Simulated assay, not measured.
Amino acid sequence: MTPFCTVARDGAILVVTMNNPAKLNALVAHAHDEMAGIFNAFEADPELHVAILTGAGRAFCAGSDIAAYVAGTNRPLPPAGGGGLTHNTTLNKPVIAAINGLCMGGGFEIALACDILIADETASFALPEPRVGAAALGGGLIQLARKMPPSHAMKLALTGERIDAAEAYRLGLLAEVVPAGTVVDAAKAIAANMLKGSPLSLRITRRIMKLALAGASAEELDRVELELRAQSMASADFAEGMAAFMDKRRPVFAGK
């Protein structure tokens, strides 16, 4: 079985590339399980702190391989969901979507599950499932409602229409739009900025942000903040950060 993704390490950054450019990186039957394994390994690796997800060729991901559905050879999604990300409740490390070209259907749902979305100027986005008698039930509708103004999210969801990178940026879906061919480098620059901070602090910050974006109650947020504040202040990274600040030097974080 041909692997769907290629994986490369760049220091503390993991670059995951969906690599089926002949089919615009359409999600074949084994892709979701493979990607779940990749992101599980990323979570477990103490030397890796940020992941970047991108696509080979002229697409990020064109969505599911419709031929597999027609042939009945598709598989149920793993517990972590589409791309190992859409329903992943155990991942604590940040993932950046570096979107190049087409980002459609299940591919868009996977991108929406990432923590930061950036795109090159050629990118375009849609959830076209209603146009083929389906619905975007892989988490994309929920994420779209959280990440875009309500009326625009509803329009995009109900029409299945496509928007370009400039429009996605205007609507707040993207953090950056960059020239074609530079999106992975731009994602690495964001990751490098993140890695100036404590890896433990990245995980703690991401957890609170995810809870808040998901609409957690004030009581739950207060409870988790108290728990994480105690964890943070008792950590080696906190002690190193304070010492480095007082010594006017760059901290060397251990991630714990």
Rank of each mutant, 00 (worst) to 15 (best):
F4M: 10
C5E: 00
C5T: 11
T6D: 14
R9F: 00
R9T: 06
A12I: 00
L14Y: 04
V16E: 03
N19G: 03
N20F: 10
P21Q: 11
P21L: 08
L24F: 14
V28S: 11
V28L: 08
A29R: 15
H30N: 09
D33T: 02
D33I: 06
D33G: 11
G37M: 04
G37T: 05
F39G: 11
A41R: 15
F42K: 02
F42G: 04
E43N: 11
A44Y: 03
A51K: 04
I52F: 10
L53H: 00
G55C: 08
G55Y: 01
R58L: 05
A59E: 04
F60P: 07
F60L: 09
A62I: 08
G63A: 05
D65L: 14
A67K: 10
A68S: 15
Y69D: 10
Y69I: 01
G72V: 01
G72C: 01
N74W: 12
L77C: 05
L77V: 01
L77N: 15
G81K: 08
G81F: 10
G82M: 13
G83P: 13
G83L: 13
G83N: 14
T86Y: 05
T86H: 11
H87Y: 08
N88H: 12
N88G: 08
T90H: 14
P94I: 01
V95Y: 04
A98E: 09
A98K: 05
A98W: 05
I99Q: 08
L102N: 13
G105V: 01
I110W: 04
L112K: 10
A113D: 10
A113E: 12
C114Q: 09
I116V: 15
I118A: 02
D120H: 09
D120E: 15
D120L: 07
E121C: 08
A123C: 07
A123R: 06
A123E: 11
F125K: 05
L127F: 14
P130C: 09
V132M: 10
V132T: 07
G133A: 08
A134H: 02
A134K: 05
A135N: 11
G138D: 09
G139C: 12
G140F: 04
L141E: 14
I142K: 13
L144C: 15
L144A: 15
A145W: 12
A145D: 13
R146D: 06
K155M: 14
K155C: 05
L156S: 02
L156D: 04
A157L: 15
L158Q: 14
R162I: 07
R162S: 12
A165G: 03
A166K: 14
R170I: 01
R170W: 03
L174M: 03
L174V: 02
E176Q: 15
G181F: 08
G181Q: 13
V183P: 07
V184M: 03
V184K: 07
K188E: 06
A189H: 06
A189S: 12
A189F: 00
A192N: 11
S201G: 15
I204T: 02
I204Q: 00
R206M: 08
K210C: 09
L213Q: 13
A214T: 01
A216H: 07
S217W: 04
A218C: 05
L221N: 07
R223F: 00
L226P: 02
A230I: 02
Q231P: 00
S232E: 11
A234P: 07
A239T: 04
A239P: 03
E240M: 09
M242T: 12
A244R: 09
A244T: 07
M246D: 12
R249P: 04
R250N: 06
F253Y: 15
G255C: 05
